[in-house]
Design a protein around this nucleic acid. Structure first.
Lengths: 106, 106
DNA sequence: CGGAATCCATTGCGATACTG
DNA sequence: CAGTATCGCAATGGATTCCG
Protein backbone atom coordinates (compact mmCIF):
# COMPACT_ATOMS: atom_id res chain seq x y z
CA UNK A 1 0.00 0.00 0.00
CA UNK A 2 1.15 3.49 -0.82
CA UNK A 3 0.71 5.68 2.21
CA UNK A 4 -1.10 8.17 0.07
CA UNK A 5 -3.69 5.64 -0.91
CA UNK A 6 -5.46 6.39 2.32
CA UNK A 7 -7.35 9.53 3.29
CA UNK A 8 -8.98 9.94 -0.07
CA UNK A 9 -10.89 12.86 1.28
CA UNK A 10 -7.99 15.22 1.86
CA UNK A 11 -7.13 17.42 -1.13
CA UNK A 12 -3.52 17.39 -0.03
CA UNK A 13 -3.21 13.67 -0.57
CA UNK A 14 -2.59 13.45 -4.32
CA UNK A 15 -0.26 16.42 -4.23
CA UNK A 16 1.73 14.98 -1.36
CA UNK A 17 1.85 11.61 -3.07
CA UNK A 18 3.37 13.28 -6.10
CA UNK A 19 5.89 15.38 -4.24
CA UNK A 20 7.12 12.66 -1.92
CA UNK A 21 7.95 10.36 -4.79
CA UNK A 22 11.66 9.63 -5.07
CA UNK A 23 13.74 12.33 -6.75
CA UNK A 24 10.65 14.37 -7.55
CA UNK A 25 11.60 17.53 -5.71
CA UNK A 26 15.12 17.22 -6.98
CA UNK A 27 13.87 17.12 -10.56
CA UNK A 28 11.56 20.08 -10.08
CA UNK A 29 14.29 22.06 -8.40
CA UNK A 30 16.67 21.36 -11.26
CA UNK A 31 14.15 22.33 -13.91
CA UNK A 32 13.27 25.52 -12.09
CA UNK A 33 16.85 26.65 -11.65
CA UNK A 34 18.28 25.45 -14.96
CA UNK A 35 15.26 26.15 -17.10
CA UNK A 36 14.15 23.80 -19.89
CA UNK A 37 16.41 20.78 -19.93
CA UNK A 38 16.90 17.75 -22.13
CA UNK A 39 16.59 14.22 -20.82
CA UNK A 40 20.26 13.40 -20.90
CA UNK A 41 21.29 16.61 -19.22
CA UNK A 42 18.64 16.16 -16.59
CA UNK A 43 19.94 12.69 -15.88
CA UNK A 44 23.38 14.09 -15.31
CA UNK A 45 22.17 16.96 -13.13
CA UNK A 46 20.06 14.72 -10.92
CA UNK A 47 23.06 12.75 -9.85
CA UNK A 48 22.53 9.09 -9.11
CA UNK A 49 19.12 8.65 -10.73
CA UNK A 50 18.57 5.83 -13.20
CA UNK A 51 16.97 6.26 -16.61
CA UNK A 52 14.12 4.09 -15.53
CA UNK A 53 13.16 6.14 -12.53
CA UNK A 54 13.78 9.44 -14.25
CA UNK A 55 11.44 8.44 -17.07
CA UNK A 56 8.91 7.19 -14.58
CA UNK A 57 8.96 10.40 -12.58
CA UNK A 58 8.84 12.60 -15.66
CA UNK A 59 5.76 10.74 -16.82
CA UNK A 60 4.04 11.28 -13.51
CA UNK A 61 4.93 14.95 -13.45
CA UNK A 62 3.71 15.31 -17.00
CA UNK A 63 0.46 13.59 -16.18
CA UNK A 64 0.04 15.89 -13.18
CA UNK A 65 0.55 18.85 -15.53
CA UNK A 66 3.61 19.97 -13.63
CA UNK A 67 5.95 19.73 -16.59
CA UNK A 68 5.71 19.87 -20.36
CA UNK A 69 7.40 17.39 -22.62
CA UNK A 70 8.63 18.93 -25.87
CA UNK A 71 9.43 16.23 -28.36
CA UNK A 72 11.31 17.02 -31.55
CA UNK A 73 11.53 14.01 -33.85
CA UNK A 74 14.92 14.93 -35.21
CA UNK A 75 17.70 12.41 -35.63
CA UNK A 76 18.74 11.85 -32.98
CA UNK A 77 15.50 12.73 -31.23
CA UNK A 78 15.46 15.65 -28.88
CA UNK A 79 13.20 15.80 -25.84
CA UNK A 80 13.10 18.81 -23.58
CA UNK A 81 11.28 19.14 -20.31
CA UNK A 82 10.16 22.37 -18.72
CA UNK A 83 7.91 23.47 -15.89
CA UNK A 84 4.31 24.42 -16.50
CA UNK A 85 2.52 27.07 -14.52
CA UNK A 86 1.81 24.40 -11.93
CA UNK A 87 5.49 23.70 -11.81
CA UNK A 88 6.08 27.33 -10.99
CA UNK A 89 3.63 27.03 -8.12
CA UNK A 90 5.78 24.28 -6.73
CA UNK A 91 8.92 26.26 -7.33
CA UNK A 92 7.62 28.91 -4.97
CA UNK A 93 7.11 26.30 -2.30
CA UNK A 94 10.60 24.95 -2.81
CA UNK A 95 12.04 28.41 -2.53
CA UNK A 96 10.42 28.62 0.86
CA UNK A 97 11.80 25.25 1.79
CA UNK A 98 15.18 26.58 0.78
CA UNK A 99 14.71 29.54 3.07
CA UNK A 100 13.75 27.23 5.90
CA UNK A 101 16.73 24.99 5.23
CA UNK A 102 19.04 27.97 5.60
CA UNK A 103 17.26 29.12 8.72
CA UNK A 104 17.59 25.69 10.30
CA UNK A 105 21.05 24.69 9.32
CA UNK A 106 22.94 27.94 9.45
CA UNK B 1 21.09 4.06 -1.94
CA UNK B 2 18.73 6.61 -0.58
CA UNK B 3 18.11 9.27 -3.20
CA UNK B 4 18.92 11.92 -0.65
CA UNK B 5 22.35 10.48 -0.03
CA UNK B 6 23.53 12.28 -3.09
CA UNK B 7 24.03 16.01 -3.55
CA UNK B 8 25.50 16.52 -0.12
CA UNK B 9 26.17 20.11 -1.01
CA UNK B 10 22.59 21.26 -1.35
CA UNK B 11 21.08 22.57 1.88
CA UNK B 12 17.70 21.35 0.71
CA UNK B 13 18.78 17.75 0.76
CA UNK B 14 18.39 16.84 4.44
CA UNK B 15 15.12 18.71 4.68
CA UNK B 16 13.73 17.04 1.61
CA UNK B 17 14.90 13.68 2.87
CA UNK B 18 12.93 14.24 6.03
CA UNK B 19 9.78 15.49 4.38
CA UNK B 20 9.59 12.84 1.70
CA UNK B 21 9.75 10.04 4.24
CA UNK B 22 6.57 7.99 4.34
CA UNK B 23 3.67 9.50 6.30
CA UNK B 24 5.80 12.42 7.42
CA UNK B 25 3.72 15.21 5.96
CA UNK B 26 0.60 13.46 7.07
CA UNK B 27 1.84 13.37 10.65
CA UNK B 28 2.89 17.00 10.62
CA UNK B 29 -0.40 18.04 9.11
CA UNK B 30 -2.30 16.16 11.77
CA UNK B 31 -0.28 17.63 14.61
CA UNK B 32 -0.66 21.13 13.24
CA UNK B 33 -4.39 20.93 12.80
CA UNK B 34 -5.25 18.86 15.88
CA UNK B 35 -2.67 20.35 18.22
CA UNK B 36 -0.73 18.21 20.71
CA UNK B 37 -1.72 14.61 20.30
CA UNK B 38 -1.05 11.35 22.09
CA UNK B 39 0.49 8.38 20.36
CA UNK B 40 -2.63 6.26 20.22
CA UNK B 41 -4.78 9.08 18.92
CA UNK B 42 -2.18 9.96 16.33
CA UNK B 43 -2.13 6.38 15.17
CA UNK B 44 -5.85 6.49 14.67
CA UNK B 45 -5.79 9.85 12.90
CA UNK B 46 -3.04 8.87 10.51
CA UNK B 47 -5.12 6.08 9.10
CA UNK B 48 -3.28 3.01 7.93
CA UNK B 49 0.05 3.61 9.62
CA UNK B 50 1.57 0.89 11.77
CA UNK B 51 2.97 1.42 15.26
CA UNK B 52 6.39 0.59 13.99
CA UNK B 53 6.50 3.20 11.29
CA UNK B 54 4.75 5.81 13.37
CA UNK B 55 7.34 5.38 16.11
CA UNK B 56 10.12 5.46 13.56
CA UNK B 57 8.87 8.66 11.96
CA UNK B 58 8.23 10.35 15.29
CA UNK B 59 11.79 9.59 16.31
CA UNK B 60 13.16 11.15 13.15
CA UNK B 61 10.99 14.21 13.50
CA UNK B 62 12.05 14.54 17.13
CA UNK B 63 15.69 14.25 16.17
CA UNK B 64 15.19 16.90 13.53
CA UNK B 65 13.67 19.15 16.20
CA UNK B 66 10.39 19.31 14.35
CA UNK B 67 8.35 17.85 17.20
CA UNK B 68 8.60 17.57 20.95
CA UNK B 69 7.94 14.40 22.85
CA UNK B 70 6.31 14.97 26.22
CA UNK B 71 6.58 11.87 28.34
CA UNK B 72 4.59 11.52 31.56
CA UNK B 73 5.54 8.34 33.44
CA UNK B 74 2.07 7.81 34.82
CA UNK B 75 0.37 4.45 34.82
CA UNK B 76 -0.48 3.90 32.11
CA UNK B 77 2.20 6.06 30.54
CA UNK B 78 1.16 9.11 28.60
CA UNK B 79 3.15 10.45 25.69
CA UNK B 80 2.12 13.54 23.81
CA UNK B 81 3.64 14.91 20.64
CA UNK B 82 3.49 18.50 19.51
CA UNK B 83 5.14 20.68 16.90
CA UNK B 84 8.14 22.79 17.74
CA UNK B 85 8.84 26.13 16.19
CA UNK B 86 10.43 24.28 13.31
CA UNK B 87 7.26 22.30 12.98
CA UNK B 88 5.37 25.54 12.63
CA UNK B 89 7.70 26.56 9.82
CA UNK B 90 6.66 23.42 8.02
CA UNK B 91 3.03 24.03 8.79
CA UNK B 92 3.24 27.24 6.84
CA UNK B 93 4.60 25.38 3.85
CA UNK B 94 1.86 22.81 4.09
CA UNK B 95 -0.76 25.50 4.25
CA UNK B 96 0.59 26.75 0.96
CA UNK B 97 0.50 23.27 -0.45
CA UNK B 98 -3.09 23.11 0.65
CA UNK B 99 -3.81 26.32 -1.21
CA UNK B 100 -2.15 24.93 -4.30
CA UNK B 101 -4.08 21.70 -4.00
CA UNK B 102 -7.34 23.63 -4.02
CA UNK B 103 -6.19 25.75 -6.91
CA UNK B 104 -5.29 22.69 -8.95
CA UNK B 105 -8.12 20.36 -8.18
CA UNK B 106 -11.10 22.71 -7.96
C1' DC C 1 19.36 10.35 -27.87
C1' DG C 2 15.64 8.95 -25.18
C1' DG C 3 13.73 5.73 -23.74
C1' DA C 4 11.36 0.49 -23.09
C1' DA C 5 11.97 -4.16 -21.37
C1' DT C 6 13.75 -7.41 -18.42
C1' DC C 7 15.70 -9.26 -14.38
C1' DC C 8 17.04 -9.08 -9.83
C1' DA C 9 18.53 -7.89 -5.04
C1' DT C 10 17.38 -5.10 -1.45
C1' DT C 11 14.59 -3.47 1.96
C1' DG C 12 11.08 -1.24 3.97
C1' DC C 13 6.75 -1.96 5.43
C1' DG C 14 2.88 -4.49 7.54
C1' DA C 15 1.30 -8.07 10.51
C1' DT C 16 1.77 -10.18 14.62
C1' DA C 17 3.07 -10.96 19.16
C1' DC C 18 4.85 -9.38 23.29
C1' DT C 19 6.13 -6.06 27.40
C1' DG C 20 7.03 -2.38 31.20
C1' DC D 1 -0.75 2.98 26.74
C1' DA D 2 3.15 3.29 24.12
C1' DG D 3 5.93 1.19 22.38
C1' DT D 4 9.77 -2.99 20.96
C1' DA D 5 10.92 -7.43 18.54
C1' DT D 6 10.69 -10.53 15.02
C1' DC D 7 9.50 -12.22 10.61
C1' DG D 8 8.38 -12.56 5.79
C1' DC D 9 6.91 -10.87 1.64
C1' DA D 10 6.00 -7.55 -2.11
C1' DA D 11 7.27 -3.72 -4.13
C1' DT D 12 10.57 -0.82 -6.06
C1' DG D 13 14.56 1.00 -7.58
C1' DG D 14 19.13 -0.24 -10.02
C1' DA D 15 21.69 -2.43 -13.58
C1' DT D 16 21.74 -4.06 -17.92
C1' DT D 17 20.45 -4.69 -22.52
C1' DC D 18 18.28 -3.42 -26.65
C1' DC D 19 15.80 -0.35 -30.01
C1' DG D 20 13.70 3.39 -33.37
Amino acid sequence: MQPAEKSKGCPLTPLVALLTGPWTLHIIWTLSTQGPTRFGVLKRQVEGISSKVLTERLRMLEEAKVIYRDYKPTIPPQVTYRLTERGEDLHIVMTQLNTIAHKWYN
